[in-house]
Computed example of a mutant assay.
Amino acid sequence: MTEFRRKYGAPLWHLSLLLGCFAVTGWIALRLAGEPTAWRMLLWFIGAVIAHDLFLFPLYALVDRALRAKLGGAGGRSALNHVRVPALASGLLLLVYLPGILGLGGDTYTAATGLTPQPLLARWLVVSAAIFAGSAVLYALRRRRLRAGVDIGGPAD
């Protein structure tokens, strides 16, 4: 087993998990092979990969680096995570609701839900603000607990 790990570079469970992922991906590809709109899904996927790798990743890596430089230290890492997690959640929600926010597929949305897509932007902004506010409150509570633990000489979690 040690010889396998040395040659492969990772434990056996890693290879097993990777092969399972390839099996699921292959099954999905076979299911989509007969689909008449499969090329549109493939085009969307390739576009999303290109947009992420060429534009979004460098952008949020730059923002993350700037925040790390500004916050610095161990306490800064904790604060940075309280920005990263809500930003990720807000970004994922934007990705899911962006077509509706941009007004694309409004007729389909209205036919499926009986509602109009106009309030989606305002709702996304409110939910994003609530996520960031919740994270800020959690960070403040953790800082307060840490300071209280340090002030009384007890261990800080």
Rank of each mutant, 00 (worst) to 15 (best):
S78W: 01
L12Y: 15
T25Y: 05
I50M: 14
R143D: 02
R147N: 12
G26N: 11
R143M: 00
A87C: 05
A122Q: 15
G47P: 07
I50E: 13
V127A: 01
L18S: 12
A29C: 09
L32N: 00
Y97H: 08
V127N: 00
L93V: 12
R142Q: 07
V85Q: 07
A29V: 12
H14E: 13
D53C: 04
D107V: 09
G47R: 09
P155S: 10
E35M: 08
A156K: 03
A79G: 10
L12V: 01
I46M: 08
P86H: 04
L59Y: 14
F22Y: 08
R65K: 14
V49H: 07
L125I: 10
R40G: 07
M1W: 15
P86T: 06
P36V: 04
H52K: 09
L104I: 15
A51W: 05
N81F: 05
G149I: 01
G26D: 05
S135D: 05
I46C: 14
A66P: 04
A23I: 10
A111T: 10
L125K: 05
F45D: 09
G134Y: 09
D64A: 06
G100F: 03
A111M: 13
G134W: 04
E35T: 03
T110N: 06
L120H: 00
C21T: 04
Q118T: 12
D151V: 12
I152A: 05
L102K: 03
D53Q: 09
G26I: 08
I50F: 07
A23R: 09
S78R: 08
V137K: 14
P36N: 00
I101T: 12
L30H: 02
F4W: 10
F4V: 02
R123C: 10
L93F: 02
R123Q: 06
I131V: 11
L17W: 13
L120S: 01
Q118Y: 13
G91L: 03
P155C: 09
N81H: 15
L95R: 01
I46N: 07
R6H: 07
A122W: 14
G154C: 11
S135C: 11
A133P: 02
L17M: 14
P11F: 10
K7S: 10
G134C: 08
